[in-house]
Design a protein around this nucleic acid. Sequence first.
DNA 1: TGTTGACCTTATAGTTGCTGGAACCTTTAG
DNA 2: CTAAAGGTTCCAGCAACTATAAGGTCAACA
Lengths: 143, 143
Amino acid sequence: MNISEAAKRSGLGSKTIRYYESIGLVAPAKRSENGYRDYSEHDVEALRFLQRARATGFGIEECRQLLGLYDNDQRHSSHVKSLVLEKVEQVESQIAELQAMRDTLNSLASRCAGNEGPQCAILDELSTADPDSRDTRTREGKS
Amino acid sequence: MNISEAAKRSGLGSKTIRYYESIGLVAPAKRSENGYRDYSEHDVEALRFLQRARATGFGIEECRQLLGLYDNDQRHSSHVKSLVLEKVEQVESQIAELQAMRDTLNSLASRCAGNEGPQCAILDELSTADPDSRDTRTREGKS
DNA sequence: TGTTGACCTTATAGTTGCTGGAACCTTTAG
DNA sequence: CTAAAGGTTCCAGCAACTATAAGGTCAACA
């Protein structure tokens, strides 16, 4: 089948599939006489696996690992499980960060009148607050 | 003052400041005789504003808007407030997405034995589940 | 048969927000 | 005098694609 059919069946876009091939995440597809990529059901299975894994929050390199385990019948399920649990932790810390952000935003908004006047507590706070009090990620490490 | 001092006082990195200048987010700094950038307290105030706004979750273009409002005494605080509330919504939907991800990951993990055997419910689910059931972002729009 | 339109191919550049490095100049301390 | 620690510019790279250009191919319709 052509790439667009494989795309439809896997839930990925055609461009994404070509991209995955280009970075070696999937093996190069075999070609038909006209040079078009030609996919088997087996290929689609792998693509689908990737679609699911990406949607579930795994990065490309993690997908590579998962795919390696998927293809390896010597695997230990404990290995897979630990990858997943590690991912849970990452996701939870992202959630916590976003929640802190949301709270900050809400507290800013609550102090702003939101009328036609120029006086604005949001801008005041953004300009005057202590730069060390909130975030550290923006600063440089040693070069 | 030199860029590294401005960096220290604003909470940004030197490279970040140069980058902000390069994309026109801040006005080009004036230069001392030796060609080094020379920052005033006023400049630092703007940089600090940016540091705070970025840490609070605003993107570069949003910062540009905020800075525009900051410099405009004809502004309406309602405009600023609506930007913030819009941001809150964006952040909340990101949170919801991540929570869904985490739940999926946890449910995958709970069904996996996590032992030395190769049988793994996680890999099974990732390979067999309906590709339409979870995520839409990976599919192509019309070209 | 011609041509339209949808599909395929490759290669390159853009996205977001920086960060790292190379190659070079200037200042400062020993 | 020399070496380190700053500064400068510009270019490459990160993630994970997406968009665009310029072209080849294929099926259908008049």
